[in-house]
Protein backbone atom coordinates (compact mmCIF):
# COMPACT_ATOMS: atom_id res chain seq x y z
CA UNK A 1 0.00 0.00 0.00
CA UNK A 2 1.16 3.44 -0.79
CA UNK A 3 1.85 5.51 2.22
CA UNK A 4 0.40 8.97 2.05
CA UNK A 5 0.45 9.76 5.73
CA UNK A 6 -1.33 13.06 5.45
CA UNK A 7 -3.39 12.31 8.57
CA UNK A 8 -0.31 11.17 10.47
CA UNK A 9 0.08 8.06 12.59
CA UNK A 10 -2.98 6.98 14.54
CA UNK A 11 -1.47 8.31 17.75
CA UNK A 12 1.27 10.87 17.82
CA UNK A 13 2.39 10.68 21.44
CA UNK A 14 4.32 13.92 21.33
CA UNK A 15 1.07 15.74 20.57
CA UNK A 16 -0.73 13.94 23.37
CA UNK A 17 1.90 14.93 25.91
CA UNK A 18 2.15 18.52 24.79
CA UNK A 19 -1.62 18.94 24.77
CA UNK A 20 -2.16 16.99 27.98
CA UNK A 21 -3.65 19.81 29.98
CA UNK A 22 -6.12 20.70 27.22
CA UNK A 23 -7.15 17.07 26.87
CA UNK A 24 -7.72 16.79 30.60
CA UNK A 25 -9.79 19.96 30.74
CA UNK A 26 -11.93 18.78 27.81
CA UNK A 27 -12.40 15.45 29.50
CA UNK A 28 -13.53 17.23 32.64
CA UNK A 29 -15.92 19.37 30.62
CA UNK A 30 -17.25 16.21 29.03
CA UNK A 31 -17.88 14.71 32.44
CA UNK A 32 -19.46 17.91 33.68
CA UNK A 33 -21.85 18.15 30.72
CA UNK A 34 -22.82 14.51 31.23
CA UNK A 35 -23.34 14.70 34.97
CA UNK A 36 -25.42 17.86 34.74
CA UNK A 37 -27.57 16.37 31.98
CA UNK A 38 -28.26 13.11 33.84
CA UNK A 39 -28.86 14.90 37.15
CA UNK A 40 -31.35 17.33 35.64
CA UNK A 41 -32.89 14.48 33.67
CA UNK A 42 -33.43 12.56 36.92
CA UNK A 43 -34.80 15.60 38.70
CA UNK A 44 -37.40 15.94 35.95
CA UNK A 45 -38.09 12.32 35.04
CA UNK A 46 -38.52 10.81 38.51
CA UNK A 47 -41.27 13.19 39.68
CA UNK A 48 -42.88 12.94 36.24
CA UNK A 49 -42.63 9.16 36.44
CA UNK A 50 -44.29 9.12 39.85
CA UNK A 51 -47.00 11.36 38.50
CA UNK A 52 -47.53 9.24 35.38
CA UNK A 53 -47.62 6.10 37.51
CA UNK A 54 -50.26 7.51 39.84
CA UNK A 55 -52.22 9.03 36.95
CA UNK A 56 -52.29 6.55 34.07
CA UNK A 57 -54.11 9.12 31.94
CA UNK A 58 -50.98 11.26 31.91
CA UNK A 59 -48.79 8.43 30.65
CA UNK A 60 -49.44 8.49 26.87
CA UNK A 61 -48.79 12.22 26.47
CA UNK A 62 -45.68 12.13 28.67
CA UNK A 63 -44.18 9.08 27.00
CA UNK A 64 -45.26 10.52 23.65
CA UNK A 65 -43.51 13.83 24.07
CA UNK A 66 -40.31 12.39 25.53
CA UNK A 67 -40.38 9.71 22.83
CA UNK A 68 -40.67 12.37 20.18
CA UNK A 69 -37.62 14.14 21.53
CA UNK A 70 -35.73 10.85 21.57
CA UNK A 71 -36.26 10.23 17.87
CA UNK A 72 -35.06 13.65 16.75
CA UNK A 73 -31.44 13.57 15.57
CA UNK A 74 -29.06 15.13 18.05
CA UNK A 75 -27.61 17.69 15.66
CA UNK A 76 -31.13 18.66 14.69
CA UNK A 77 -32.32 18.84 18.28
CA UNK A 78 -29.49 21.15 19.22
CA UNK A 79 -30.39 23.40 16.34
CA UNK A 80 -34.09 23.25 17.12
CA UNK A 81 -33.57 24.47 20.66
CA UNK A 82 -30.94 26.99 19.71
CA UNK A 83 -33.30 29.83 18.73
CA UNK A 84 -34.90 29.60 22.17
CA UNK A 85 -31.87 29.21 24.37
CA UNK A 86 -29.16 30.79 22.25
CA UNK A 87 -26.80 29.34 19.68
CA UNK A 88 -23.45 28.26 21.10
CA UNK A 89 -24.65 28.28 24.71
CA UNK A 90 -24.19 25.62 27.36
CA UNK A 91 -27.91 25.90 28.06
CA UNK A 92 -28.73 24.73 24.57
CA UNK A 93 -26.36 21.81 24.92
CA UNK A 94 -27.84 20.79 28.25
CA UNK A 95 -31.43 21.22 27.11
CA UNK A 96 -30.79 18.81 24.26
CA UNK A 97 -28.81 16.35 26.37
CA UNK A 98 -31.44 16.38 29.12
CA UNK A 99 -34.09 15.89 26.48
CA UNK A 100 -32.49 12.65 25.39
CA UNK A 101 -32.32 11.24 28.93
CA UNK A 102 -35.99 11.86 29.66
CA UNK A 103 -37.55 8.99 27.76
CA UNK A 104 -35.20 6.38 29.23
CA UNK A 105 -35.46 7.69 32.78
CA UNK A 106 -39.20 8.22 32.64
CA UNK A 107 -39.89 4.75 31.29
CA UNK A 108 -37.65 3.12 33.82
CA UNK A 109 -39.14 5.06 36.71
CA UNK A 110 -42.64 3.99 35.70
CA UNK A 111 -41.56 0.41 35.07
CA UNK A 112 -39.76 0.35 38.43
CA UNK A 113 -42.76 1.62 40.33
CA UNK A 114 -45.01 -0.84 38.51
CA UNK A 115 -42.73 -3.68 39.56
CA UNK A 116 -43.13 -2.98 43.28
CA UNK A 117 -44.70 -6.16 44.67
CA UNK A 118 -48.39 -5.67 45.40
CA UNK A 119 -48.09 -7.58 48.68
CA UNK A 120 -45.40 -5.24 49.99
CA UNK A 121 -47.61 -2.25 49.23
CA UNK A 122 -50.60 -3.95 50.78
CA UNK A 123 -48.56 -4.71 53.89
CA UNK A 124 -47.28 -1.13 54.07
CA UNK A 125 -50.79 0.28 53.94
CA UNK A 126 -52.02 -2.30 56.39
CA UNK A 127 -49.29 -1.35 58.86
CA UNK A 128 -50.23 2.31 58.72
CA UNK A 129 -47.73 3.93 56.36
CA UNK A 130 -49.09 7.25 55.14
CA UNK A 131 -49.11 7.55 51.32
CA UNK A 132 -46.00 9.72 51.46
CA UNK A 133 -44.17 7.32 53.79
CA UNK A 134 -45.16 4.45 51.55
CA UNK A 135 -43.76 6.26 48.51
CA UNK A 136 -40.49 7.29 50.14
CA UNK A 137 -39.79 4.18 52.19
CA UNK A 138 -41.30 1.37 50.15
CA UNK A 139 -42.20 2.23 46.58
CA UNK A 140 -39.27 4.39 45.50
CA UNK A 141 -36.61 2.22 47.15
CA UNK A 142 -38.09 -0.80 45.41
CA UNK A 143 -38.17 1.06 42.08
CA UNK A 144 -34.53 2.04 42.50
CA UNK A 145 -32.99 -0.91 40.59
CA UNK A 146 -35.01 -0.02 37.51
CA UNK A 147 -34.28 3.68 37.91
CA UNK A 148 -30.55 3.01 38.26
CA UNK A 149 -30.66 0.77 35.19
CA UNK A 150 -32.14 3.75 33.38
CA UNK A 151 -29.40 6.02 34.72
CA UNK A 152 -26.86 3.56 33.35
CA UNK A 153 -28.27 3.63 29.82
CA UNK A 154 -28.88 7.39 29.95
CA UNK A 155 -25.33 8.10 31.11
CA UNK A 156 -23.64 6.00 28.44
CA UNK A 157 -25.91 7.50 25.76
CA UNK A 158 -25.24 11.02 26.98
CA UNK A 159 -21.47 10.54 26.94
CA UNK A 160 -21.69 9.73 23.24
CA UNK A 161 -24.03 12.62 22.51
CA UNK A 162 -21.90 15.19 24.32
CA UNK A 163 -19.36 15.01 21.47
CA UNK A 164 -21.98 16.34 19.09
CA UNK A 165 -22.52 19.48 21.17
CA UNK A 166 -19.10 20.53 19.90
CA UNK A 167 -20.94 21.92 16.89
CA UNK A 168 -22.41 24.62 19.10
CA UNK A 169 -19.18 25.32 20.88
CA UNK A 170 -19.48 22.89 23.82
CA UNK A 171 -18.73 19.24 23.40
CA UNK A 172 -15.90 18.32 25.73
CA UNK A 173 -13.97 15.66 23.86
CA UNK A 174 -16.00 16.49 20.77
CA UNK A 175 -13.79 19.54 20.31
CA UNK A 176 -10.83 17.24 19.78
CA UNK A 177 -12.75 15.59 16.99
CA UNK A 178 -13.53 18.87 15.28
CA UNK A 179 -9.94 19.94 15.66
CA UNK A 180 -8.58 16.71 14.22
CA UNK A 181 -10.93 16.77 11.31
CA UNK A 182 -10.24 20.38 10.39
CA UNK A 183 -6.49 19.80 10.65
CA UNK A 184 -6.64 16.46 8.87
CA UNK A 185 -4.90 14.98 11.91
CA UNK A 186 -5.68 11.53 13.32
CA UNK A 187 -4.43 11.87 16.84
CA UNK A 188 -6.98 14.26 18.36
CA UNK A 189 -9.91 12.32 16.88
CA UNK A 190 -8.52 9.04 18.07
CA UNK A 191 -7.82 10.40 21.53
CA UNK A 192 -11.34 11.81 21.67
CA UNK A 193 -12.83 8.51 20.55
CA UNK A 194 -10.85 6.38 22.96
CA UNK A 195 -11.38 8.66 25.94
CA UNK A 196 -15.08 8.84 25.18
CA UNK A 197 -15.38 5.06 25.06
CA UNK A 198 -13.28 4.69 28.20
CA UNK A 199 -15.36 7.29 29.97
CA UNK A 200 -18.51 5.39 29.03
CA UNK A 201 -16.96 2.18 30.30
CA UNK A 202 -15.86 3.73 33.57
CA UNK A 203 -19.21 5.42 34.11
CA UNK A 204 -21.00 2.16 33.41
CA UNK A 205 -18.80 0.26 35.85
CA UNK A 206 -19.23 3.00 38.43
CA UNK A 207 -23.01 2.87 38.24
CA UNK A 208 -22.95 -0.91 38.43
CA UNK A 209 -20.78 -0.53 41.53
CA UNK A 210 -23.26 1.91 43.04
CA UNK A 211 -26.04 -0.55 42.29
CA UNK A 212 -24.15 -3.33 44.02
CA UNK A 213 -23.42 -1.28 47.10
CA UNK A 214 -26.71 0.52 47.45
CA UNK A 215 -28.94 -2.40 46.52
CA UNK A 216 -27.56 -5.41 48.37
CA UNK A 217 -31.03 -6.90 48.50
CA UNK A 218 -31.11 -7.29 44.73
CA UNK A 219 -27.88 -9.22 44.57
CA UNK A 220 -28.11 -11.56 47.53
CA UNK A 221 -29.81 -14.70 46.49
CA UNK A 222 -31.93 -17.02 48.48
CA UNK A 223 -29.76 -19.18 50.70
CA UNK A 224 -32.44 -21.25 52.30
CA UNK A 225 -34.26 -23.62 50.02
Amino acid sequence: MGVVASAGPIVQWSWVSSERSMIVSLLLQHIELTVIAVAIGLAIAVPLGIFAWKMPVARPPLIGVTGLIYVIPSVALLSLFAPLTGFFSITTAEVALVGYTLLILLRNTIAGLESVPADAQDAAQGMGYTPLQELMKVQLPLALPAILAGVRVATVTTIGLVTVTAFIGQGGLGQLIIQGFSEDFNTPIFVGLVLSVLLAGVADALIVGIQRISLPWVRRRRLAS
Binding site: G160, F181, L193, S196
Partner: peptide, 15 residues
Protein backbone atom coordinates in the same frame (compact mmCIF):
# COMPACT_ATOMS: atom_id res chain seq x y z
CA UNK B 1 -20.19 3.50 23.16
CA UNK B 2 -18.10 4.71 20.19
CA UNK B 3 -19.34 8.18 19.24
CA UNK B 4 -20.37 8.10 15.58
CA UNK B 5 -19.07 11.62 15.24
CA UNK B 6 -15.55 10.51 16.11
CA UNK B 7 -15.70 7.42 13.93
CA UNK B 8 -16.97 9.15 10.82
CA UNK B 9 -14.36 11.91 10.95
CA UNK B 10 -11.57 9.47 11.72
CA UNK B 11 -12.44 7.30 8.74
CA UNK B 12 -13.01 10.29 6.47
CA UNK B 13 -9.50 11.66 6.88
CA UNK B 14 -7.73 8.38 6.13
CA UNK B 15 -5.69 8.75 2.93
Amino acid sequence: AIPSFALVTLIAIQP
